[in-house]
């Protein structure tokens, strides 16, 4: 039993290999990568449980920057300590970053060609459409929750979205707009806002 346990533990080399393969396989974005992570660490090797993963992911939503890098750091730390963080990140990022760089370089060589321009004119609007879907995916759980809570919350949600978009549109620095919206979120959705006051008083 003891022996089995140690054999089951991930070695640094193994972590590096798994993350490299995840990095290189995840064409087309975040959803694919998350799926691959779940498959490798939960289903194939059972180093993590589904609950572990959900908990780690929630923490990553709070962290700044790319959530996938954050979850790589957390999983790496859990499975291999500080060295685990390093191997996991290196495996995920370095090979794919290198390939990305070469593709960008190749693109710069050919971007002036007429055919390439035409292709781009097709791809860029498609990217915009995908981006629109990403925002819909983000908005949907929020709006559904608010819809269940009543029209006031739904209105508040829409107002906050519009407020933030307009602020960025008007060249308000993005982190300022984000922080203000976050604070407004606390004011709008924490009820009762002050514990000791009666409910009627602080309801607007």
């Amino acid at each position: 039993m003891q022996v089995l346990q140690t054999e089951n533990k991930p070695t640094s080399k193994k972590l590096l290999l798994i993350w490299t393969s995840i990095g290189l396989q995840s064409f087309g974005g975040g959803a694919t990568t998350v799926l691959l992570i779940q498959r490798e660490f939960i289903e194939k090797r059972s180093w993590l449980s589904n609950e572990d993963f959900a908990h780690l992911w929630n923490l990553c939503l709070l962290a700044p920057g790319i959530n996938l890098i954050a979850i790589t750091i957390l999983i790496g730390k859990k499975l291999g300590g500080t060295a685990g963080i390093f191997y996991s990140l290196f495996g995920l990022l370095f090979p794919s970053a290198l390939i990305t760089c070469f593709i960008a370089a190749g693109f710069q060589q050919i971007e002036h060609l007429h055919a390439v321009q035409a292709i781009l004119k097709g791809v860029v609007p498609a990217t915009a459409g995908i981006m629109l879907l990403v925002s819909v995916n983000f908005a949907y759980p929020q709006l559904r929750l608010a819809y269940k809570e009543g029209p006031l919350n739904l209105l508040l949600c829409l107002l906050l979205i519009i407020f933030c978009s307009v602020a960025i549109f008007l060249q308000v620095p993005v982190f300022v707009a984000l922080s203000i919206t976050a604070i407004l979120g606390i004011l709008c959705f924490t009820r009762p806002l002050f514990k000791k006051k009666a409910v009627i008083q602080e309801h607007d």
Partner: peptide, 24 residues
Amino acid sequence: WIPGLMRGISLAVVGTFLTVFWTI
């Protein structure tokens, strides 16, 4: 206040995505 903060951030993220969409 944590749930409210999270909701505010999530809504702001939707806003940023809409501006990304517009930019492209």
